[in-house]
Amino acid sequence: MLRWLPESVSTFSGDIDALIRLIYYTVGAWFVLTFAVILIFLVRYRYRPGRRAVYLPGNTLAQSAWVLVPGLVVLLLDIGIDIYGERVWEAVKLHQPPAAVQVRVTGKQFAWEVLYPGPDGRFGTADDRQLNGELHVPVHQVVHVTLGAEDVIHSFFLPHLRLKQDALPGRQLTVWFEATVPGTYPLVCAELCGTGHTGMFGRLIVHTPEDYQAWVKAQWPSS
C-alpha cells in the first residue's frame, strides 16, 4: 500500500512517511486481529440446533474487562502515535530553520505566481522578478515560501515534498522546505478554488547548485 506514495524528496518527507508507516502497521495489525476474531466467532458460534447462547450481559467490571483492556491498549497506542506525531509536526510546521532562499507565492484563480526578491534580497524593489507557475530552488538549501492569495483560498501542495499549506487571501503565511533530490516536481492547488481549479498547477524545479547559479545568472544578467 505504501509504495503508492510518491518519491520522497525533502528533509522532512521521510519523517512524515515514517509516521504514516507507523500508523499503517499499527492499524494494520488491529485490522487483521479484529477481523480474525470476528470471523472465528462467526464460524464457531454459528447456529446449530440444540445449542443455547451464553448469557453474558457484560455489566460487571470483570466481564467488561474483555472490552476495557483492549480499549486501554488502543489508548496507549494513540498516545504513542501522538507523541511521535508531535515531533514531526514540530519539525515541519513550528520550527523554521533560517532561510537561504526566499520567495513569495501567491495563488489566484487559477495560477500560482512566484515572486523572487532578486539579488538585493528584498521584495518591492526594481529587481523583483515574477514567474508564472514555476518555482526554482537550489537543492539542499532551506527555502522560505511566503504564501498569500488574491481572491479565494488555495492550497499550496508539493506532493513529493509532503508539504501542504492553504494560502489565504488577506494573510501571509510562511512555510519552509529543503529539497534533497534535484528534479522537476508538480506544484498543485489542493483546495477547491473555482471552475478552473483542476487546471491550477505549476512546477517545482529543484536545481543542483551549479544549475541554480546558472539559472540565477540567466534571470538577473546585470548582477
Partner: peptide, 24 residues
C-alpha cells in the same frame, strides 16, 4: 485520536456480543 477509544470500546462490545452466541 482519543475519540478512537470510545468507538473502539463500542466495536469491541459488538464483537463480544458475538462471542458464545447462536448466530444466524
Amino acid at each position: 485520536i482519543l475519540i478512537s477509544v470510545p468507538f473502539a470500546l463500542m466495536v469491541f462490545a459488538m464483537i463480544a456480543t458475538l462471542w458464545g452466541g447462536v448466530i444466524r
